[in-house]
Design a protein around this nucleic acid. Structure first.
Lengths: 186, 186
DNA sequence: GTCTATATCACGATAGAC
DNA sequence: GTCTATCGTGATATAGAC
C-alpha cells in the first residue's frame, strides 16, 4: 500500500481509538510505518491528515448504511441498519469526534462530521416517509423527528455500552426502540 | 471558596470542555487560581483530581435527575426529565468521558461513569414499571429496554447537536421519542 | 499550605541533506 | 520522496525553601 494511503488509514484508526487531541503525529507515523519527513511531505500537518481521515470515514459510514437501506420494507431497512453488526465497544468513529474540542472548534474538521449525521438523518427520514405512504407507519408519525430519534439511539447506545464496558446496554436500547417503532406494546 | 473545592470544580469544568486527555494540570491550576505546589499538596496528580471531579459530577447529575423524578405520572416524570433545560451544545459531562481513552482504560476513573449510567437506567426502568402497574403503559412494554432507549436518546441527542452545532437535532430526537412513548402515532 | 526551581519527556513542526 | 537534526513549547511531575 502507498504511503499516503497508509497514513490516512492509520489516522482513521487512531482518531477512532484516541481522538484528535489524543493522537500525535509521531503515533501516526509509527502506525503507518512512515518517517517524519514523509508525513510532512504529503500533508501539511496533523489537521490536514485528520481532515482526509474523517472524510474517508464519513464516506465509509455512508456506504455501509446504504447497504442496509438497499431493499426491504421500511421497517426491515431500519431494523437491519440498527441491528447490523458493529464494534460497539469501540464506539462510533464519527460520533466520538463530537467530544473532541479541537475538532469542534475547527470548521474544516467539523464539516465532514456534520455532513455525515445530516445525511443519515435525512436518509432515515426518507425511508420513514416511504413507510407512511405505503401504510406501514401511521400518518401521524413525524419522519424528521423519528429519524433523529433513531440516529440518537445508535449514538447513545455506544455511549452506554462504553460506560458499562459491555455491549448489553446498546442492544437493550436498540431493541427498546424497535419495540416502540413496531408497536409491540399496543 | 477553599482551594480543594476550587480545584475540583475547575477540573469538572475542564473535563467537560476538553476531556481528560485534553486537560493539563497547568490548565487546572490556572482555572482554580492555585499554584503548582498547592495542587500537588492536595492531590497526588491529575488522575486523583479527575476521580474526585467525576464523582462529584455523577452526584450532581443524579441529584438533578431526582428532582425531575420527584412527582407526577410516569409520563410526566419521564418527559420532564427529557425536556428539562440543558446546556445541549456543551454535551453531557459524563457521556463525553466515554470517548476518553485514558478514562476508559482506568477502572478507577471509569467506575463513577459506569455507576452514573447504571443508576439512571435503573431509575428510569423503575418509573416505567410503575407506569405499567397503574395502566399508564401497556403490559407488553419492556421496562429495562425502554429505559436504555430513553437514556440513549439523551446521550445521542447531545452527539447529534454538537455535530450540527445546533440544538435542533437534540430537540427533534427527544420529541420523536416522546411521540413514540405517548403513542401519538396510533 | 504554598512558592519557585528544576527535570524529563512528548508534541508539532521546520530545515536541509540525500 | 524520505531521512536525520533541530527547535520552541507544553505536559506532568519532583524537590526543597518558606
Amino acid at each position: 500500500m502507498e504511503t499516503v494511503e497508509r497514513l490516512i488509514r492509520s489516522t482513521q484508526e487512531l482518531l477512532w481509538e484516541r481522538g484528535y487531541v489524543g493522537t500525535s503525529p509521531k503515533a501516526i507515523q509509527i502506525a503507518a510505518d512512515a518517517g517524519q519527513g514523509s508525513m510532512y511531505h504529503h500533508f501539511s500537518g496533523k489537521a490536514e491528515l485528520a481532515k482526509a481521515a474523517i472524510e474517508r470515514s464519513g464516506a465509509e459510514l455512508r456506504a455501509a448504511a446504504e447497504e442496509q437501506f438497499a431493499d426491504g420494507t421500511s421497517t426491515e431497512r431500519i431494523t437491519g441498519y440498527l441491528r447490523r453488526e458493529r464494534e460497539v465497544l469501540k464506539g462510533c468513529r464519527m460520533g466520538r469526534l463530537t467530544s473532541d474540542p479541537d475538532v469542534m472548534a475547527d470548521p474544516v474538521l467539523r464539516a465532514p462530521v456534520d455532513e455525515t449525521f445530516q445525511w443519515i438523518r435525512s436518509r432515515l427520514a426518507t425511508i420513514i416517509a416511504e413507510g407512511k405512504e405505503n401504510g406501514e407507519y401511521p400518518a401521524g408519525l413525524d419522519a424528521t423527528r423519528t429519524a433523529a430519534t433513531i440516529a440518537a439511539v445508535l449514538q447513545g447506545g455506544y455511549v452506554l455500552a462504553r460506560a458499562a464496558n459491555s455491549q448489553e446496554p446498546f442492544d437493550l436500547a436498540i431493541e427498546g426502540l424497535v419495540d416502540l417503532l413496531t408497536g409491540v406494546t399496543s
